[in-house]
Each structure stands twice: as C-alpha cells, then as structure tokens.
Amino acid sequence: MEYAIQATDLSKSYGQGHTQVDALKGVNMTVRPGELFAIMGPSGSGKTTLLMILGLVTEPSEGRVLLEGQNIYNGTGLDLQRLRREKIGFIFQFSNLIPFLTAKENVLLSLELIGIFGRQADARAMELLEYLEVADRAGNLPEHLSGGERQRVAVARALANNPAIILADEPTAALDTERGLSVMRLLRKVSKEQGTAILVVTHDTRMISEVDGVIRLMDGRMVESDGSKQQSQPQSSR
C-alpha cells in the first residue's frame, strides 16, 4: 500500500449561518508508512481539528480520508471505534497514561483492545518496553515515572496495536528542550524502524530538524508544506 493515510479536500465547519466557523478548509495531505511529519501552526489554525479527523473522532464536513487505502467517512458505516483501536495510535501532550495502571499494564490494555491476551500480550508488551528502553520501569505506576519515561511508555502504548499511523498531540510540550528532542528522535527511530507513519502536532520549531516534512496551517488552510526532507512530498491543495 502506498499511503498510510491520505486526506483529500478536507473541510470542517462548526455552527450554521452567520455563526459558522470554518476550522479546516480544503486540506490535502498524504503520509506514507515510515514517514514522520509535523503539523504546525498558531492556536486556532486547525491543527487539533485535523488531528481529530485523522484520528477518527470527528467527521469532516467535506472531503475524504483514506486509511491504508480504505475510505473512512462519507457514509461508509464503518465502526470507527474499532478502526481507531486497530489502526491508530495516540500520544498526548502529558502522556495521559492511565494512572491506575502500571507502565506494562498501559501497554497491555492496548493489546487487549485488539484481542491479544495472556502470554502473547505479556511478551509483546515487554518487547515494546525494552525497545523503548523502559522495561525496567514496567511495574511502576505513571506517577513514579519521569516525564520522559512516561512519553516512552506512551509511545509503547501507541505502538502496541501495530498501527497504520500514530497521531502525536504536542508530545514534547511538557518536556524541556533536551528531553523533547530525545522524544522526537525516538519517534523518528520508531517511524523508520517500525515503518509507522507518524504525525506530530507541535509548536516547537526546534523539533523540525527531526521530521521528514512539515504541514503548516493558518486559519484552517494549509499554507505551506515543507517536504524537502521527506521521501514522498505531502500534497497541498493550495
């Protein structure tokens, strides 16, 4: 399959008539497996709306989204909750690990959601934690982990379902520059080694050096796409 995710003429409006707000207007983009893209833009530019549409939690007003070539919206009647747990991984600003589950259990939960239980799930969870170098913290609750460790566990959780795409919402915002860069390098490593497409929403321009391309949004429109470093350039309608 050529693209992990492909969005065509995506628009999203809230409200009606004179109260209508256009959060996204005609956005086009494609991301291939193994690519790491940053979505940048000021507050209110539509970054989160784009993330919600790509994360299958908000339906676009217009346009089409193909996830691994499969049309998601447009009255297809697909079980989006199921697609989300099977095909998408999420990483959040504050990691948002479930506080009452240990690091390993947080990963196990994602595995259980896709029907992997028991020893198989256990082995996979430990494998991911080892890969992300936090295996020694497997039995710790999130409150006993450092910010960087939490994000590593969050990445492990996002990878658990072997997703088509990982959507990361400001994963470095709560970290200092060094730890932020460390997380970005980790995401880059994951995308390359695991072949996973990753989209990172970030404000931090210092992180650009680690990504394959940048999608810049302004007032809901894609104003610029810098795909100079990417293997396949994201497309813009404008």
């Binding site: 697609l83 959040f92 948002n96 479930i98």
Partner: peptide, 14 residues
C-alpha cells in the same frame, strides 16, 4: 473523566 476520555479515544469498548 480524563482517563475515561483517553480510554474512549484509544477505542476501548464503551
């Protein structure tokens, strides 16, 4: 509530 939101986003069955 926040954890429930995360669980829902991860696709946990309602």
């Amino acid at each position: 509530l926040k954890e429930i939101a995360v669980l829902k986003l991860l696709g946990t069955q309602t």
